[in-house]
Design a protein around this nucleic acid. Sequence first.
DNA 1: CAATAGATCATCT
DNA 2: GATGATCTATTGC
Length: 185
Amino acid sequence: MKSSAASFGRILPRRFYARPVVEVARDLLGCYLCHGRRVGKIVETEAYLGVEDRAAHAWRGLTPRTRVLFGPPGHAYVYLIYGMHECLNLVAEPEGKAGCVLVRALEPVFGLNGTRPSGPGKLTQDMGITRRHNGRDVTRGSLVVRAPRRREPVPVAVSPRVGITRCAEWPLRFYIKENPFVSRR
DNA sequence: CAATAGATCATCT
DNA sequence: GATGATCTATTGC
């Protein structure tokens, strides 16, 4: 615990998430994902809009699986993909609207091995996040997101989302320019 | 270096 | 029964 301990500040409040999902995805860049003692800086995100977004799980509407997405903002949505990887999303928009943000890459800050490339399936493994965290409130408890202590301007780049077949051209992926922990260059 | 294959299972048709 | 918000190893130029 040295300079890294001073790099993050207060927990992001629920009103941070209760906004248009594109804004939330962009503003999460530079914030800190904290699980227990493990901390990573968010450097890459993707926005999934809801029922109007054919690439989003919520596109088909309310099912047992998408229940969390239609619930209140500031909660975790964790699901299994390809039978072996888990992905972490943060629910955005006011309750009833199913926007969410996929956390795609972290820069290791504390308690993480810093030498590996990142990615949405890898970061959950490194952070110890599993489907047990699905539905968890991310504004309190052991899994939270914190604001930077000092909000410095972050150079943001935009691109299409990765790994999807529908709405594949929509510019909904956001990442910090030049950051070496972004999943693709 | 780029392209492809295989692993593996919850969810929805 | 097909699909999928992935990752790694391997093959091929």
